[in-house]
Amino acid sequence: MSSGLLGTQIVAQIGIIVNDIEKVSEDYARFLGVEKPEWSWTDPVEQAQTEYKGESCPARAKLAFFDCGELQIELIEPDEQPSVWRDFLTEHGEGPHHIAFGIKGMKEKVLEFHDSGFPLLQKGEYTGGRYAYMDTTKELKVLVELLEND
């Protein structure tokens, strides 16, 4: 059986765009019966090297994470700068934004996705790794996020 474009079938994370990370974090914590996690800002562009549609991008977002076994729920509250997060909130409102998969070889995977008709929308660095949002919405009805941890 083929391992497909990703090289894995294991979903690492589901990302959800929200307007108010404090409230939605409280709601998820109560629902899951866990302590509410602290949220944090994504790194500034100088550190994260964020690019949106091929251009340097100052966009940031508040993030909160819930670890649910092997799957992580990520809540994302975007700032007002243009980004995949802000676009989604403006166009669709709150809701599921992406499905993330852990991969190896980010540059190669981004090229493979591009060659398969799934262009890169946004990418950046985080402490311990990097991410890339690929435009799979037409076919898969959700973005795919590639995560590569060091």
Rank of each mutant, 00 (worst) to 15 (best):
T8L: 05
K138Y: 07
M1W: 14
K141N: 15
L6Y: 04
P44V: 00
E38D: 15
A59V: 04
K138P: 14
A48S: 13
R130F: 08
W85K: 03
T42I: 06
K104C: 00
L147Q: 02
G15A: 07
L121M: 15
E70D: 11
D87C: 11
V142M: 08
Y28V: 11
T127A: 10
S3V: 07
M106E: 09
I99L: 10
V11A: 13
K109W: 02
E46R: 11
V11S: 02
L75T: 10
L140D: 09
K104N: 01
T42G: 13
H92V: 07
D27R: 08
I76Q: 01
S40L: 10
G4L: 01
L121G: 08
I103C: 02
P37D: 10
D67H: 03
I21Y: 07
P37W: 00
H97A: 10
Q9L: 11
K138W: 09
D20I: 06
S3M: 05
E26W: 04
M134A: 01
D87P: 12
L143E: 15
I17K: 04
L146P: 03
F65S: 09
P44R: 07
W85N: 01
W39R: 06
G54W: 00
I103T: 05
E125W: 07
N19A: 08
K36Y: 04
V34Y: 01
V34R: 14
G69N: 10
P96M: 05
E46N: 14
Q122S: 08
L63N: 03
L143K: 15
Q9K: 14
V110M: 14
E108V: 04
I10M: 10
Q49H: 12
G93K: 11
Q47P: 06
K141D: 15
S25E: 14
V142W: 06
L140R: 12
P78M: 01
E38F: 08
E55Y: 03
I76D: 01
L71V: 07
E70A: 09
